[in-house]
Amino acid sequence: MAAVAEQPRRLRRRGPHARREARIGLLFVLPAFVLFVLFRFGPSIAGVLLGFTDYSLMDSPKFTGLDNFTRLWDDPVFWSSLKVTVLYTVITVPGTIIAALGLALLTRRAFRGSKLFRSIFFLPVVTSLVLASTVFIWIFSTDGPWSTVMSLVGGHTGSWLADDVFVVPALAIVGIWSRFGYGMLILLASLQNVPRELEEAALTDGAGPWQRFRHIIAPSLKPALFFLAVIETTASFQVFDAVYVMTGGGPANASYTLVFQLYDAGFKYFDLGYASAIGLALFVLTLIVAIIQRLVIGKEK
């Protein structure tokens, strides 16, 4: 950091040189800056503004104040898709984190084949959910593997994707499958933080595995768990690809999520103002949940 602090003094001394540096710096940033203005800053502001208009791409936007938001409040489909999205998140995020944690603890110490296991567990993360969905449709089909296994263990038989109660759990299973490998890697990295001396000491004192986990391992995992919870919640709130391919939001809107509603409002009905309002609602929701997670996990510490 010392070098950074020294820089300004050095630059100020060499006036023309500093100006040249500044010019070159700006020049190097310029291409990225232009793209950011066009495709990030501009659309971020426009996205907020559009939420207060009625716009269909054919005519120019009409300012309608809070209309879109009152409409959203009264829209049963919005509440239903919010419920579906939250339900999906409530299953997927803990499921992903628990699976990730368990597997991270199991593959924590190197052993013959540990590398292979980690590679296998990460493979779904790099796989497109669209491609995976094409085979999961078969797995969840009426006489497919999942239904067969379920009927053997006495669970709900028939296609989970065609059932309005089980469709979200089915999608959540796909979500967990596709994400736990990522969480595992994050946690594996964090597990290196666990003070070895403490662990050894605890072992000598005869502490059991749970006690060791609770008092020695868990505290050092906290930042990583918080990070994972935020990342996974954000991702779950935006679930779309698998739903689009596997269920189309059905049956009877039972898997119709917020982003799906946003997509339909925007690109099926060209109700772009309303779609933007849904986008804003999603944004606010994500923020609120992140803050809550922060408070809960942060407080314990």
């Binding site: 996205g47 935006q238 986008g279 999603l282 944004f283």
Partner: peptide, 11 residues
Amino acid sequence: VPYHVTMIPTF
């Protein structure tokens, strides 16, 4: 900023 806020204006 979530992608879904910017997606529509970008489109």
